[in-house]
Nucleic acid binder design. Structure first.
Lengths: 240, 240
DNA sequence: GTATGTGAAGTAATTCACAGCT
DNA sequence: AGCTGTGAATTACTTCACATAC
């Protein structure tokens, strides 16, 4: 598929959010939604949403809005999540095993079908229906199963080696949870998911809040004493 | 602290990366580094690094570069990670328990000192040296310990309720791992860490790769047959 | 000579505002 | 009347290029 205009990377980054919101709307039986209402729901402006979607085509009905089912389907296709992806996970430590057990990936169509580690005590064990395999089997198994996406959940100091192995195995996209920069060749897509980084940004905010808020006020971005209806308290206990 | 010029949010987002690289350089005994060399290491341009740092002051020595120890220290202060932060975690399911056990947070100064869940079978258990507490105790305990940062690791459908509770408890910054948008009042900082989103962006890349690469080629951003020395393969096994 | 810090230029992202369709 | 899709305007971010300092 080739799009009608240059696709803004920032627009792509927002599509998953739209996708989730539309899924929920669809589950609730909402059939049509305007960019205004969708914007309210996802936290972006209506103009932003319309601009983002316009990169990929025209999905709305002027004067009416968007058909939820159609738009949901269209975005799934654009993102390529109208199918299931097999994923390889490397590292079955704390984080790796949590990612393996995390239901959120499967819910969005990403199935971890192979897990590799170098801890001989773990090899051969079956976790979450997947047998842990020795790292040395990785290239073969990944090729065998035609896996295209790899998740790195190993310590920082070996992350690059693992990335190299994944690339040699034919992996074409990597999600790196190790807190280290890794380098991959052109043609392999890389995303970093460094969990501490976001906490550090929060720390920055807390440390510099006074200055930040002063600046924001000067730009009129901080709502003064304005009431926000979404902020009412809820009851506290509920099954989850 | 108030900075000499408007601070670009994008610059703040890169500081943790610089911080990590400088830590490593310092451990290796490197004393001085130029923006060129640091850029090489972190994957940003030298100009980018200098511009970023210039938001916060002048840290370099013209004609020489940056003293690693000094810059490292300065960035720690800017980010507010020259101290330890106590953090509350809500949700002790798959993801929550992994985050609790994840050593990366503590390494960067974030200590999870309170964990809340609503599963009565878990309450009172001690995991990673922290006793799991009932969700109803949250407001009291958070106030008691003066915790300012909260991590949400509960299912999407209760994420907003938990966020509301955290806010009522006096939390000032939230890291949300639930795949749902939550809303918080002004003065509370929120970051989303939706693990599936990044996989979906990778899926987009794999699905639209041909078109993306064509476009990049037209802009001359894809290296043709150029050799990259960093891409040599390494030996495969190593303790981790 | 060498490398920073920074205006200026260039590029990308977001918001505005409205023509045009239903 | 209501809402999309989109050029134009604005704002944010990145790269360039060089004066300045060591």
């Amino acid at each position: 598929m080739s799009w009608k205009k240059r696709v803004a990377e920032a627009a792509v980054a927002r599509l998953p959010t739209y996708s989730r919101a539309l899924d929920e709307l669809d589950r609730k039986g909402v059939e049509i939604i305007s960019s205004d209402e969708l914007g309210e729901k996802v936290g972006y402006s209506a103009a932003q949403i319309r601009k983002d979607l316009s990169c990929f085509g025209e999905f709305g009905k002027v004067g009416t809005g968007y058909y939820v089912k159609d738009l949901k389907e269209a975005i799934s296709q654009i993102l390529g999540i109208d199918r299931a992806w097999n994923v390889a996970l490397v590292g079955a430590g704390n984080l790796g095993s949590a990612l393996l057990a995390y239901p959120g990936f499967r819910e969005r169509g990403f199935r971890i079908v192979a897990v590799f580690d170098n801890d001989l005590r773990k090899i051969g064990k079956k976790w979450e229906n997947v047998i842990l395999q020795d790292i040395s089997e990785m290239p073969e198994k990944i090729k065998e199963q035609g896996i295209q996406i790899g998740i790195i959940a190993v310590p920082a100091k070996v992350a690059q080696q693992i990335a190299d192995m994944l690339v040699l195995s034919g992996i074409r996209a990597i999600l790196n949870f190790a807190p280290a920069r890794i380098v991959v060749p052109d043609g392999v897509e890389l995303r970093a998911a460094d969990l501490s980084r976001e906490l550090e940004r929060l720390s920055y905010f807390l440390t510099n809040e006074a200055a930040i808020r002063t600046e924001a006020l000067q730009k009129g971005k901080v709502a003064g004493g304005e009431e926000d209806k979404t902020r009412e308290s809820h009851h506290y206990r509920q099954d989850w």
